[in-house]
Design a binder for these strands. Structure first.
Lengths: 215, 215
DNA sequence: ACTCGATGTTACCCGGCAGTAGCAGCCGCC
DNA sequence: GGCGGCTGCTACTGCCGGGTAACATCGAGT
């Protein structure tokens, strides 16, 4: 998108501005190539700068990656928590959480091209520091949802967590799929369909005995 | 688990037996380290053999990985398709698909330790050959479900596909989470809970107007 | 028991890339 | 107006790991 390259090759920049620019360049390269296929040279060139400059701002490749990861982890986490806190109507909560995931994935507003892939599709899950951060996002969002589910259904904590994983996981997977499929239907419609699906599924728990065979 | 190493260092084996053994060793290493952190030396040592033997059976690291990927891709795909074909009762279909995912992930019967991670958590998604195979599994399972959903709900193809992604995605994510959380509840109970959630969600589509606010 | 080919081994090559040493130019400050 | 330090660059090192060349060993057939 933004060809930051050769616009200002050789120009001096204050530290904080340079840092932001490097992070932006790194994000583009990491997102489009993944961690392993991304060379530090690529990132430097992308930022219109040479490699040692990168090392003046970040001690190593992993640290650079983690800095990005942390930023976006806080972003999703905040969105989901706000989605739940904004109301006490559970149906609206379902709606808001779905919207949160779709907005996060669809970085239409921000220039943020595909930052969500760093978290949802990292190719560095075996690095402990990365795994810890990725797991943390999943765990905390799930628990935020599970708090409500457990409180309002009377299910055990384990049961509530399983259902919450189903709800947040579906939101994440569908949002990603919707984007990769080039937005086959409008965002609002996608959210509305999923909201109906999930609300019908979760709203009357734990009433048992919905036996109704046939197709 | 099975320390195939040094049991028979130096022993000659017929080609097909050796090949199976190499695939088994490769799977263990790829699963526990991921593609990038797995060295061909590791795999060879794991199989109690030296590196060139590996190259007598597979032209390169990627081919070895793809061979494993193909095997397990067919496995899940077959399980889900059978789950749908075994009945025409849609509620049982939901049950069967969930069971298919949980059984696939929980390789209790086979020695198959964590093979599902190769497909659901590959760290080589940027390699086109890998991406193609992983996408194919997701796409075909989704479409198999979407065929039924579209037929029985009257939704548009795009809408049916979105909901199908939600259903299969939730099955995949919850099964993986359940295993990683060390099976917090029995498999049958997890399936039953999710079956209820999903069946309530999907069964009466596309009836609109389930307005019922409040918590 | 000698040969021949399949099976294995040791020991190497070499390319890619993270990280670094040492040099060059720009700017403010006395 | 030249000196110091900050910003940046070119050019290198070192290592890890995929892939290979050349040599060794076993066993079947005659």
């Amino acid at each position: 998108m933004t060809d930051t390259v050769d616009a200002s090759r050789g120009a001096r920049l204050p530290r904080s501005a340079r840092r932001k620019q490097l992070l932006a360049a790194a994000q583009e390269v990491f997102v489009s190539n993944g961690y392993h296929a991304a060379a530090m040279d690529d990132i430097a060139v992308r930022a219109g700068v040479s490699k040692p400059v990168l090392y003046q701002h970040f001690p190593g490749k992993l640290d650079l990656y983690l800095a990005l990861l942390d930023t976006h982890a806080e972003d999703v986490l905040g969105r989901v928590r706000r989605a739940l806190a904004e109301t006490d109507d559970n149906r609206i909560r379902v709606h808001n959480v779905l919207t949160a995931y779709f907005d996060f994935v669809d970085g239409e507003d921000r220039g943020d091209s595909g930052a969500f892939r760093l978290i949802f599709e990292s190719d560095l899950g075996n690095e402990p520091a990365v795994r810890e951060r990725v797991d943390r996002v999943g765990r905390l969002t799930m628990q935020a949802v599970a708090d409500t589910v457990a409180a309002d259904t009377g299910l055990s904590r384990e049961q509530a967590e399983l259902l919450s994983v189903a709800l947040t996981g579906a939101a994440q997977i569908t949002a990603t799929w919707w984007l990769d499929a080039n937005r086959p239907i409008p965002k609002a419609e996608a959210v509305r369909l999923l909201e109906t699906l999930q609300w019908r599924g979760i709203s009357h728990f734990p009433l048992q005995g919905t036996e109704r065979p046939g197709g």
